[in-house]
Simulated scan of single mutants.
Amino acid sequence: MNPIRLLIADDHPVVRDGLSGMFAADPGFEVLGEASDGAEAVRLAQALRPDVILMDLRMPGTDGLAAITELAKLKVAARVLVLTTYDTDSYVLPAIEAGATGYLLKDAPRDELLRAVRAAAEGQSVLSPAVASRLMTRMRTPDAGPLSQRELEVLELVAAGTTNREAAAKLFISEATVKTHLLNIYGKLGVSDRAAAVAEGFKRGLLGKSGT
């Protein structure tokens, strides 16, 4: 079985060295390179084609969120696993919406981090317990405001009969991200399934404006 090929993006050399050493010591992983900011991460991801990118969010110049967005636009196949010290909504939700496969905090135990990278390489969504709890709370007490532009795009695709997988491909985001958007849509529209969301979307005039 081939090792999981990694790219590590963090602006702190000590963090990069620590992560590189940890993964290099395990034969199941191969560290292809290190980046000190988001722009370098995007360049190296295109050149090295890693399986998983460990991405810090707060970096000088091009930050991790901008890098995740750019990687999705460029259709880079690597899974992005955010590894950061920040677990607030203002960091978690934008990163997942931009296309991150997972979100872990830097205080995660070594074994949890190794498992998370393996899961991310297989396309599974990975969230630290603290982040998962925060997202579940957000889903249970959703913002009753208007749908975001991306949520409207997802709803339009659902109305057109696309599957989550097809919607993810069309929007250049992960299937897990589509599911997150759907949960937000259900909460904002006060419904519990796709059909009801579409019906409510038409009822509110959210659908049908652009021929969908």
Rank of each mutant, 00 (worst) to 15 (best):
S90K: 10
R115V: 05
A78H: 03
D63F: 00
L83H: 08
V158S: 12
V76P: 04
A120W: 08
L114H: 07
A72C: 08
L32R: 01
A132L: 06
M55Y: 02
L32T: 00
A66D: 11
D89T: 13
A160S: 15
T101P: 00
T88Y: 11
N164E: 15
L71C: 08
E34M: 13
T88P: 00
A72H: 02
G61P: 04
I173W: 01
T88A: 13
G102K: 03
A98K: 00
L93W: 02
T88C: 08
A100M: 03
A120L: 07
P142Q: 11
S133G: 13
G28N: 06
S36T: 14
A98F: 06
A39Y: 08
M139N: 09
A130T: 10
L105W: 01
V42Y: 09
E151H: 04
E122K: 11
V117C: 02
L74K: 12
R110E: 15
T163H: 07
V52Q: 00
L65Q: 04
R138Y: 05
T101E: 15
R49N: 15
E97L: 06
A41V: 01
L127S: 07
T62W: 03
G38R: 05
F172K: 10
E30I: 07
D56R: 00
L104D: 05
L114W: 00
P50E: 13
K106V: 08
D107V: 09
